[in-house]
Design a protein around this nucleic acid. Structure first.
Lengths: 155, 155
DNA sequence: GCTTGACCTCAAGTTAACTTGAGATTGTAG
DNA sequence: CTACAATCTCAAGTTAACTTGAGGTCAAGC
């Protein structure tokens, strides 16, 4: 199924994708991309890998981890170009994720606004410190946005 | 200047702050907090450390790294409680940072919206892939939001 | 046939922000 | 006096997403 005409070596692909060759090898190791080997053992890529890496980078901008991206990619057809329908499904879920992160930041901004000038930061009463309720329902992907407070050590 | 009456041991402080004792030691090592030692060598903290840790955690939620927080703390008086003015100055700059992150996410969301259904992700034409201009002026603190595209390896 | 650049593998290093573990000490309650 | 929890120090481990390095191979040009 893979037309033989257009196989690209790793250096070219890296250049086109804006990543390093080491990154491509790393992605392959993680199962994010695949390559075909020449008789001499060199990786050759179909042009579709460029789109795939683009996908990965956009997903990372959305805040997904590589593991989450791997999962997302499993929902896509592995060897054919994703249809608008495939893409639609994913991008809609990404949109939700972005919206969620925006909401969190807006909440934080509002809390900050309500605190500017008071200098309180008094635990228990200050809404700025005490993000528990807001953070509770976040997916794992957004945790680093919140500092991921460790569970009580002693309390 | 430190009133002797109210020194707290590390476990209590950890409990009040919602961090582990190891984290407090780590923060001390990094110069984020200070302690007084008992004759036996145990750390004792003034209650102000609780406020300081609260400050650190909020700053982390805003997206600052510990190094940035160290810098921010240096702008604050080291031994007195920060005034509303001190706090105001910092929180205003945090607000800017949050606004910036919100703007980035909104831009990403809009790009995503314009792409939903088209499934393009075609490099060069798709605005979703190709965040260069938007990402360029970001502070280091927000880099992880964008995936921090490596500089050209080959190109 | 030799040089050279692109490529290969595998292992180890990087950064942030902690956490975990080992082994020793303190200090308080019984 | 003896437990025993709470501390202590110092070293090493963790996770993510790569990067860097060492040492070797492939293939095109001269």
């Amino acid at each position: 199924m893979v037309s033989k005409q257009e196989l690209l070596p790793i250096g070219i692909v890296a250049g086109r994708c804006g990543v390093s060759v080491a990154t491509l090898r790393f992605y392959e190791e993680r199962g994010l991309v695949t390559s075909i080997r020449t008789a001499g053992g060199k990786r050759m890529y179909t042009r579709s890998v460029i789109r795939r890496v683009a996908f990965i980078k956009v997903a990372q901008r959305v805040g997904l981890t590589l593991d989450e991206i791997i999962t997302a990619l499993e929902l896509l057809p592995n060897q054919r170009t994703p249809t608008a329908r495939d893409w639609n499904r994913l991008s809609a879920s990404w949109r939700d994720r972005i919206d969620e992160r925006i909401r969190i930041l807006e909440g934080l901004r509002d809390d900050l606004d309500s605190c500017i000038g008071c200098g309180c930061l008094s635990l228990g009463t200050c809404t700025l410190y005490n993000p528990g309720d807001k953070a509770a329902k976040l997916g794992t992907g957004a945790r680093y946005l919140l500092g991921d407070a460790p569970s009580d050590t002693n309390a």
